[in-house]
Amino acid sequence: MLLEKIVTGHRNLFGVAMITLMTLAGCMPINSPVAPPATPTAALVPVRVGTLPFISNAILKLAEAEGYFAEQGLDVELVLFRSPNELTPLLIKGELDAAAPGLTAGFFNAIAKGARIRAALPLTSFSPTSCSVVSYLARQSDAANGNYDSFAQWQGVNLGVPPAGQEGMPGYLTDMILQQAGLTLKDVTLTPLDTSIQGEALRSGQVDLLYAVEPLTTRLMSDGDVAVLTTGAVVAPDLTASIVAFGPAFLDNPDMGRRFAQAYLKAVRQYREGKTARNVAIIAAHTGLDPALVKAACWVDIPPEGAINADSIMAYQRWLQAQGLLEQLVLPENFIVQGLVEEN
């Protein structure tokens, strides 16, 4: 999910940065405050949740559409964003109560500097048993020629990644692959690519390999001219690659946070029933994707019991630190909400 967010995240970064700055300066609320309902539902607690139009984020839409939040007494307003970049600042500022921001260095740096945001629930989680939302693709002709039979052959390749991918999860996963062959990121060229041209760039030979996120992989594979070399799930089994984070309101009021988690996990249970007509319809509506494509694509694996794999994120942090992107490691008790799911 994080990965997808990075992929589509850059589009209107300029606008995003502006809006972010303006919002921070308090000039422009992201939305006028929700008017308290006049009906008996007035007892519900208003909550604002940021979402992105990705398959992973559809879980939030599902919980809202099925009324799971309302069951918990939460009046959730989903605010749709185009890019994940403003989510962290808005969570810190308390404009959003929950959202799935990217696990960027900035997320940890902000906490280290005292920002009151925490990872609460796991979203994208890699597991060796399920499909992978992250794949490394090559042209079918090259793969058939044996150009990429071993990772050692990646020496000198030009790999297309999402914009700013080198400083985040794509860079981390790629580095892990290269390490297996005794290579480092310095042995390859990472080329930041706009989502709109990633497939074209691979086909036309502008890049040799492509770091692709669903549903792009499914889309490209259907034409039969690309091949999957390896996947994120193979490289980093058990990695919690993205999370749902809480802002100050939920941290100050643990009961509200717990109720949110209840609703979320109920949605996860329904989600894990698989590609039912209902789930497909909700995800297609949320993402704006063709239902057939939604059905064919790999859906992110969301763990049913709501446990974040803290060790995997610590390993990722150590990598960020080695890249010079992190001032200090943030320990799990400092970046994960404590006592959220154990108690239910």
């Binding site: 850059h10 970064l13 940065a17 960027t104 900035g106 914009p163 700013a164 990472l190 930041p192 706009d194």
Partner: peptide, 24 residues
């Protein structure tokens, strides 16, 4: 600057993007 924020590895725009990525 805007293009570098979108797609460059180097340049002032790329530095801005990285500053946001790391919240520095």
């Amino acid at each position: 600057i805007a293009i570098e924020m979108l797609s460059a590895r180097q340049g002032l725009g790329a530095t801005i993007w990285l500053a946001w990525q790391t919240l520095r």
